[in-house]
């Protein structure tokens, strides 16, 4: 199913990986994929490196204001604990297969480790949840445009390159496309055409030199898409 699809034409992180059930090699339910850690490697590519689990990963995804408020409240619940703010991690190497769930190569027992302080502060690492919803500045797109999803090449658990190749940008809310941009025979025709009409201005932007992700601008950061960036329509 998705495993083979993902290997054939890549996958969208928000649609195909976030919020899926993680299952250990012993068939035990472990957790949900609450967020995904990305690392900027030496070639300048954004590579997924770990699945993040637990309230410190989940709560910030409730939106910029509500999310940070909830995360702060969660930290205050046990202020004395130094690692209260850090999520639990599962290295992406442990993922065997991604279908409608995420299968691991190891049994669930004692699998999750707390992220250490040094890793959490590493400036080259960021979370998918922080990138989704970032404002996009681009002359060719409406002003309210945001990052809606990240498109990947490769698949967890398979050989070959595995990195972010493009951003899906446009007005709207991350996750509201419901996958209607990817399917050749979309579901109820009415729902599909409404979803596509709402996202008629959305585009796929290749992640190259013309695109700059700046986390320091404004409250949350922004994505600057230059004039020579290559924009494609959602399908085809």
């Amino acid at each position: 199913m998705t495993g083979t699809r993902a290997q054939r034409d890549g996958y969208d992180v928000g649609l195909h990986l976030l919020d899926r059930q993680i299952i250990g090699a012993d068939d035990r339910l472990v957790a949900k994929v609450d967020d995904v850690e990305l690392t900027l490697d030496d070639d300048g590519a954004l590579v997924p490196t770990a699945l993040l689990v637990g309230l410190p990963a989940l709560l910030p995804r409730f939106g910029p204001r509500l999310g940070s408020g909830l995360a702060r409240a969660h930290r205050l619940v046990r202020e004395a604990a130094a690692d209260q703010a850090q999520p639990l991690i599962i290295d992406l190497d442990l993922v065997a297969e991604v279908t409608s769930d995420v299968r691991l190569t190891r049994p669930a027992h004692g699998l999750l480790r707390r992220m250490d302080q040094r890793r959490a502060e590493d400036p080259r690492r960021c979370r998918v949840g922080d990138l989704l919803g970032l404002p996009v500045r681009c002359a060719a797109l409406p002003r309210r445009s945001k990052v809606l999803d990240l498109r990947m090449v490769g698949a967890p658990g398979s050989a070959g390159p595995h990195r972010v190749t493009a951003l899906i940008v446009g007005p709207g809310r991350p996750g509201a496309l419901f996958g209607y941009d990817r399917r050749s025979e979309p579901g109820p025709a009415v729902v599909g055409s409404v979803a596509r009409w709402l996202h008629r201005h959305a585009r796929v932007v290749d992640l190259d030199e013309a695109v700059r992700i700046d986390r320091e601008v404004g409250e949350v950061g922004e994505v600057y898409v230059g004039a020579d960036a290559s924009l494609h329509p959602l399908r085809g």
């Binding site: 199913m1 998705t2 699809r5 195909h16 279908t99 409608s100 419901f178 996958g179 399917r183 025979e185 979309p186 579901g187 109820p188 729902v191």
Partner: peptide
């Protein structure tokens, strides 16, 4: 309703 149309989940058994 949305997932019942998704071949990633249902393969040939979609709505």
């Amino acid at each position: 309703l949305v997932v019942a149309n998704d071949p990633d989940y249902l393969g040939e058994h979609v709505n």
